[in-house]
């Protein structure tokens, strides 16, 4: 159990700056998701917490202890890698018990067995990683972290190598684990759905700069800028450049069809059963609306139940 505190954390490789002054306070037991497009610096930030990358500026504290120069093995954090990084020459049991056995911890065996039964791995303890399925490997990787009871869990895109249905299942399981263990967790993903479903708070990163920090609701309903608005939510927000002086942002479910000040032409209809995505042309601009029930054709009138306005130059939200 621990808090994390970032004060002006920077990371640069020679002339290339990959993290710009990151300020963030993570409360004890909080589940933080770092999200952003690839190359935004989210993995680097995670590796800085683990100590696998050195911080080149600012200060990082775990539980008020400055850890800038502390070796990874002395930080008491556990990390689940995207590749799982299971030791191929060790059994599941040895993998999960590795960290504790290094310390000759007396509870190595019971803790491994407890974690294994929690994750449904008890019958696989004597197998080698190569004998496991992807989902099983993923659980072993999580088990390896859980067994340690570290101050902080770090997850680096742990679900990206799983298929869609398994991903949903593990997502729920992760949430359940966290509810049970309440360990401070930092989780990296590029998938905004994962971010929204898992996080207590989300940190959106772009180009090494923190765009916004907030709860899933805050990010969805009150995005601070055009980037966050576009990144969070699926399908993404429509941006209409020519309608007003500012850029107007409308989420597809905030578009109502049938009446309103604007007239658009239906171009494509994607039916998704219960709902449909209507691709519209409004003047010279493309727009997606999400509707329930029968899809219209031809020309329709439409209105926006809610619209956001963003500064054309800076992308900052106005009012």
């Amino acid at each position: 159990m621990a808090t994390l505190s970032f004060a002006g954390v920077e990371k640069r490789y020679g002339a290339v700056q990959v993290l710009h002054r990151v300020d963030l306070e993570v409360a004890d037991g909080e589940f933080i998701v770092l999200v952003g497009p690839s190359g935004c610096g989210k993995s680097t930030l995670l590796r800085c917490i683990a100590g696998l990358e050195e911080i080149t500026g600012g200060e990082l504290r775990i539980d008020d202890r400055r850890v800038n120069d502390v070796a990874p093995r002395d930080r008491d954090v556990a990390m689940v890698f995207q590749s799982y990084a299971l030791y191929p020459h060790m059994t599941v049991r040895e993998n999960m018990g590795f960290a504790l056995s290094l310390q000759r911890h007396p509870e190595t065996v019971p803790r491994v067995e407890a974690a294994a039964s929690m994750l449904g791995l008890s019958h696989l303890l004597d197998r080698f990683p190569r004998e496991l399925s992807g989902g099983q490997r993923q659980r072993v990787a999580m088990g390896r972290a859980i067994v340690r009871r570290p101050k902080v869990f770090l997850f680096d895109e742990p679900l990206s190598n799983l298929d869609a249905s398994l991903r949903n299942q593990v997502r729920v399981e992760l949430r359940r684990q966290h509810a049970a263990l309440r360990t401070t967790t930092v989780y990296v993903t590029h998938d905004q759905t994962e971010a929204l479903t898992l996080a207590d708070r989300i940190v959106v990163l772009n180009g090494g700069v923190v765009q916004q920090v907030g709860t899933p609701d805050e990010l969805y309903f009150e995005p601070k800028n055009r980037f966050v608005a576009g990144f969070i939510g699926s399908p993404g927000m429509n941006f209409l450049e020519r309608l007003e002086a500012d850029v107007v942002g409308v989420r597809p479910n905030d578009v109502t069809l049938g009446a309103g000040p604007h007239e658009a032409e239906v171009e494509v209809v994607e039916k998704l059963g219960f709902e449909a995505m209507i691709h519209l042309r409004l003047g010279e601009e493309a727009l997606v609306a999400r509707v329930e029930g029968p899809a219209p054709t031809g020309r329709v009138r439409l209105d926006f139940t809610r619209a956001y306005r963003f500064d054309r130059a800076t992308g900052e939200r106005r009012g």
Binding site: P72, R73, F81, A85, Y87, L102, Q103
Partner: peptide, 18 residues
Amino acid sequence: IPRDLEEAAEVDGASGWQ
């Protein structure tokens, strides 16, 4: 040998020799 195996061991608390 993937680099992240050694990184995993490093985070797991292994010294360089270990």
